[in-house]
């Protein structure tokens, strides 16, 4: 079979194909290696990282909604040091790009993360300013235009790595935020983080998760991602590919010159699926 060139250039981050897995849905890749060949994925965005190990939120953390999933994980992760020592070498065994998803409780922590990872062997840094499941940082940083401007500018000054900024749909005008992010020197944006939501346990008469608010993802939020004013690439289709195993979905968009890229991706997305269908026997739900 002839190889089709499916490579994409996300404004400096070259992926051999546009299939990436969203942070938090794919662990550090290791967990899925028993089921799929990690060499087949364009890039892996690892579980959200913090400076110190983070325990995350108390159980229960998951609640399924009609075609969606509410999660309240709370950025549980082993900390950036473990990522560097254990998971960068692990992921480097595979022909895939590594995206480090970074989180902080305050600006200084975000900056420290960026400085640390600037010296490490990662292909891109994904600045997560849109997690609804933590008290400090997260969503609070991604919804206020002035705060976004400040944090992206500061992070840009801390690293020369490829920089992706992950945005929240919980804003009035996501385009406004996206334009600021671009202006401050980000190379790409990632859409969308989960939508803030809540479920009630009627019997217990209280919210299902302890923090009350959780993050909604999955097919239920696909129309929201689509509606986002910025150009959105191939989201739903790739979701169908990846969802067989989990709630995995690639949504990476170059900020500069989105037009041609989007057209390109759109036109090849069906091939991506086709190829995936052949190679990832896990796929094949409802086409």
């Amino acid at each position: 079979m002839n190889k089709i060139d499916m490579s994409v250039d996300l404004n400096g981050l070259k992926l051999k194909n546009p299939v990436t897995v969203a942070s938090g849905t794919f662990g550090f890749g290791e967990e899925y290696a028993e089921f799929i060949d990690l060499n087949q994925i364009g890039a892996i965005s690892v579980k959200g990282l913090t400076l110190k190990p983070k325990e995350g939120n108390p159980p229960p953390r998951l609640y399924e909604t009609p075609m969606g999933l509410l999660n309240s994980i709370g950025l549980q992760n082993p900390g950036v040091e473990v990522f560097i020592k254990k998971y960068i070498p692990y992921l480097r065994q595979f022909d895939t790009k590594i995206i480090a998803n970074i989180n902080g409780a305050n600006l200084e922590e975000y900056m420290e993360m960026a400085r640390i990872l600037d010296k490490e062997d990662v292909d891109s840094i994904e600045l997560n300013i849109s997690c609804p499941n933590v008290k400090d940082g997260g969503l609070a940083f991604g919804t206020n235009p002035a705060v976004v401007r400040n944090i992206v500018t500061e992070i840009r000054n801390c690293t020369t790595k490829h920089l992706i900024v992950k945005l929240s749909p919980n804003v009035t005008d996501i385009k406004e935020i996206a334009l600021i992010v671009e202006e401050c020197g980000a190379d790409a944006i990632s859409l969308i983080n989960t939508v803030a939501g809540m479920a009630i346990d009627i019997e217990k008469q209280k919210a299902v998760v302890e923090r009350k608010v959780a993050g909604l993802s999955g097919p239920a939020v696909k129309p929201i991602a689509r509606e986002s004013k910025v150009e959105i690439v191939a989201t739903g289709i790739l979701l169908l590919c990846a969802k067989a195993l989990a709630v995995v979905r690639p949504i990476l968009i170059p900020v500069k010159e989105p037009g041609p890229f989007e057209t390109a991706i759109k036109s090849i997305s069906s091939i991506v699926i086709f190829k995936l269908l052949n190679k990832f026997f896990i796929i094949g739900i409802n086409f």
Partner: peptide, 21 residues
């Protein structure tokens, strides 16, 4: 516990133990 991935990737099925989550 409620699960999404079943293989340790999503961190959704946490339980409390004497050694932490």
């Amino acid at each position: 516990e409620r699960m999404a991935c079943g293989i340790g990737a999503c961190l959704g099925c946490t339980c409390e133990t004497v050694n932490g989550y």
